[in-house]
Design a protein around this nucleic acid. Sequence first.
DNA 1: CACCAGGACGGGA
DNA 2: TCCCGTCATGGT
Length: 301
Amino acid sequence: MNASVFELALPQPFDFQQCLDYMTRSPLESLYRMDYSGVNRLLRVGSADRLVRVTCLEGRGVMQVQMLDGASLSLEDREQLTRYIKDWFDLDRDLKPFIKLLQGDPLLAPLAERFAGLRLVGIPDLFEALCWAIVGQQVNLAFAYKLKHRLAERYGIAADWEGATYRLFPLPERFAGESVESLCSLQLTKNKAMAILDVASRMAGGELSRDKLLKLNDSESVDQELTKIRGIGPWTAQYVRMRCLGDQTALPVGDVGLQNAVKKLLGLSLKPTPLELSALFDQWPGWESYIAFYLWRTLEV
DNA sequence: CACCAGGACGGGA
DNA sequence: TCCCGTCATGGT
């Protein structure tokens, strides 16, 4: 047994291919790279940047995590990486009740058929999640991916492996002393540039962190903590609760993609309003984020 | 050239 | 509190 590889038990249901399909949706994704059997990405583990490969042996019911540099992991590093991988693929969630909910609802049953085993792919790093949400405000996804790539390319750490370049999303500290103008040169709007610098500064100073947000007892407090930052509105806060904090009840009602998905689902002639979305989801309490995530998939498959 | 895109903000009723 | 105009930038 090589100490550079470890395994995690897979929950049921779990469909790795569904997760990979989601992650492959944009050819512009720059933070990880997929192939036929898994995904590689550069991650900071402890104080080192490690190239990590994730695959699944679904017959044995395990996920395999491999360090591509072949070097072993300390126990502490392995625990940290395990935490990250579990959050990335939402391995600790029991989806059985969710599948039951889908199957028992005529409106949602098709989702169970099409996406069974798909996990809500997370963005465990708060800074990355916030930046991704900020660059994604009110622009199409293709452009959002370009902006993220430019951020990673200019400010992130890179490592080459087998002819491909892998990038670590920049750390908040990297933006200390950066100007709004330098971010705007990447074609971020002024407001987005200022928001990212503000978030970076708060996180680097320890005032804002994922752990602190997780310790708040209700979603309203989280939204309040986040939306007090200029440039972070309700959509961004809800999005971060959904993709980063693992809040099953998060529902980005202002999301135009979700609105379009529901419009399609119900055969409406107009996009539903946030209020209408909220009322619709009242019948599925506790699984808002998963239903929203699955509905997003219906726009791309 | 119009309209859209996985919004945010501020002023006015 | 809710509504609405405005900002801002690339894609289609």
